[in-house]
Design a protein around this nucleic acid. Sequence first.
DNA 1: CGTTAATTTGAGACCATTCAATTTCGGTGG
DNA 2: CCACCGAAATTGAATGGTCTCAAATTAACG
Lengths: 241, 241
Amino acid sequence: MSEAHLLEPLVRRWSRRLPLSADDRSAILALPATKKSFGRDAYMVREGARTTECNLLLRGFAYRQKLLSDGERQIISIHIPTEFIDLQNGILGTADHNVQSLNHSEVAAVPRSALMELADKSASARLAMWIDTLIDASIFREWVVNVGRRDARARIAHLLCELALRLERTGAGRDGSFDLPLTQEQLADATGLTAVHTNRTLQSLRREGLIQLSNGILRVLDWEGLRKVGDFDELYLHQKI
Amino acid sequence: MSEAHLLEPLVRRWSRRLPLSADDRSAILALPATKKSFGRDAYMVREGARTTECNLLLRGFAYRQKLLSDGERQIISIHIPTEFIDLQNGILGTADHNVQSLNHSEVAAVPRSALMELADKSASARLAMWIDTLIDASIFREWVVNVGRRDARARIAHLLCELALRLERTGAGRDGSFDLPLTQEQLADATGLTAVHTNRTLQSLRREGLIQLSNGILRVLDWEGLRKVGDFDELYLHQKI
DNA sequence: CGTTAATTTGAGACCATTCAATTTCGGTGG
DNA sequence: CCACCGAAATTGAATGGTCTCAAATTAACG
């Protein structure tokens, strides 16, 4: 397994968004990349750490989080394969939040310097990176709305809509069924709720035949219904470019 | 008042972060910019609109918001002079949220195309722009934490800490006293609370001698106390680079 | 299979909301 | 300069969504 192939998924994702020349492609694939594995809940990036490399998620899930001084945790975003989990750190230099592996995951670690050189050299790659960070930001904005103004049912429904759609776009899952190994506690930390209330809310969504969620598998039974409960509008994902 | 001078504050802010060559400076100042005024609550950017220009805030305040289908509003960020209020739109092409003027404000509107040309031409300018959008994103992340996991007192204290610090860094205000024409309803929409509860919470912060907030003027009486209540750590503002 | 993690259930408490009414403030015209 | 007006701020009381704490059940895993 040559290193170049590690970044193939990145090339594929970026080229769906904008035209990449042959030079662009080979420059991206020529980036030095090291495969790394992380176990469940392992820290991939630590708040306050200086950046030396950026990680592209190849397999598994990752989530960004911050810890409050009283130990409470807020999950800020959840990431799926082909996404960078810390691209912004490459530019800002210091991580302002933690990133953890959700389940067993694998990343391609690219030295920050090489990535920055690519950005200087290739206008397309640079734009693709910038867009990646901007879509991240757009998702953060929607999450502010989600935890700020929606009730428990809507928060969870919205989050599941987002994840289902993003997973679908990368070809993961089929028939509205996706691998989603989130514990209810993690789901609670992502929606600003407690695990107990998350449990009751999930039950209510299940009772109404909107979803099925067990054994780390999400099945959306009634997409329109879930979308409505979650007040979900996919514009913010910027995936139809 | 020549148009070039409109962007002087931008040059000043960016050059505090990274070195700008004489060429960079003149290229920035040569950008075509039109001064525009907005009245209180006027829409500056509308969700779903295609982008034709980016707005640099010169005077007054602006805030980003999204509306839920039931009419509720969540404010996503608050902007102060010398900041771009919609830089990300120039790249993504479609606005995914609204921006409104908080009080009477003035902006320098720069055509999207000219800004993108500058980004292609000047490595420093595009890095500065990218950093701007990344710091925005970092603030969004902190807001997710704020509305997701903090109680009412902490949310408001944290928001006031952030605004005070950002205002101070731009030279606005003195002796811990700042112009901050936020209504309690806007403060509520920014923290995911109701106006009524925001009122009671502000009273509790006042009662304890932490702040004074009236007539659109915020005075921080006990910075350490407020910081503690708000669980505030400024790392996420990335202003010490 | 035994052991720990994750999910589920119950009941009571509390923080924040809702609704409604009152007071204060800022601006305006007589 | 005062009377007036609408907006903003403030107060009260009742309601409710979510939390807390604790225990029981089920699932995951070596």
